[in-house]
Computed example of a mutant assay.
Amino acid sequence: MAGWALCMALVLSALAGAVGESRYEKFLRQHVDHPQTSSLTAHRYCEIMLARRRVTAPGRPCKPSNTFVHAPASELVAACTQTPDAAGFRSTPTPMGLTACRLRGGDTRPPCTYRARQLQHHVRLACLDGLPVHLAGTHAPPPREA
């Protein structure tokens, strides 16, 4: 019985930690990997990082997509000072290195398998109180004129 109580106490304390996470802290956990974790093989990066960062978890459906930005959090915070677009989102002034993870196949139940793409894109953000709280998407830089 004592083992069960200890197990429940650990589960409840882990849940309490997740509840106490601010929107900015959740954004950092789910989207910022700087410097980029390099010891992972390219084809396993997404599965490992999404599990390590508690974005995917047993018993929950697989997240269809997630993007990791390989730039300092301060550069994303600085983007919150940019003029918002018509939808209220702000974009980074320069492209950033990122890994875009997309769920493979149609199965949304774990184990989750992802396809990873390395990109240099601008990051589109929703900000709250001067901090990024949602990654709304990315976009390629405009083509360079010859």
Rank of each mutant, 00 (worst) to 15 (best):
S74I: 03
P110W: 11
Y24R: 12
H31C: 10
P58S: 04
M49A: 09
R102Q: 12
T92E: 12
R29F: 01
P141H: 05
P35Q: 01
A146G: 14
P72S: 07
V19G: 00
A71V: 06
R54D: 12
T92G: 10
A78W: 08
A79D: 01
P143S: 14
G3W: 14
K26I: 07
S74R: 11
Y45P: 05
A18P: 00
C101T: 00
A126M: 13
A71E: 06
L28N: 05
R102D: 03
D85F: 05
T113H: 15
C80Q: 06
H122I: 08
T81H: 12
G106C: 00
F27Y: 06
A14E: 01
H31K: 08
R60N: 12
R29W: 01
T41G: 11
S13G: 00
Q36R: 14
R90G: 01
P72M: 03
L119C: 04
V123P: 03
T41F: 03
R117N: 14
L98Y: 09
C7S: 15
H43N: 13
A9R: 06
L128V: 03
P111M: 07
R104I: 03
V19K: 02
L40V: 04
A146Y: 07
T41L: 09
R44M: 09
L128W: 13
P64R: 01
T81L: 12
V77H: 03
P84Y: 10
T56C: 07
I48M: 09
T41Y: 07
D107E: 03
H122F: 07
A79Q: 11
C127P: 04
C101S: 13
P72L: 06
S65W: 11
A140S: 13
A42E: 13
R60K: 15
S13C: 10
S39K: 04
H70R: 10
P35N: 01
R124Q: 15
V133Q: 11
L103Q: 13
A57C: 08
H43T: 11
R144S: 09
P61R: 14
C46R: 04
D107C: 00
I48W: 08
T67H: 06
T41K: 07
A14Y: 01
Q120R: 11
R29S: 04
H43Y: 10
V69D: 07
D85A: 13
M96W: 02
T94M: 13
M1G: 15
P132C: 01
Q82F: 08
R115A: 12
A140D: 15
A116N: 01
M49G: 01
P84D: 11
G88F: 12
L103V: 09
L128I: 00
G105L: 02
L119N: 00
S74P: 07
F68V: 03
E47L: 14
E21K: 11
A116T: 10
A140Y: 10
L135Q: 02
H31R: 06
R23Y: 10
R102M: 04
L131N: 10
E25T: 13
G59S: 05
V133P: 06
V55L: 14
P72V: 00
S13A: 12
G59M: 08
L15T: 01
G17D: 11
K63H: 02
T92V: 09
C127I: 08
K26V: 10
A42F: 06
T138F: 11
A16D: 03
A87V: 10
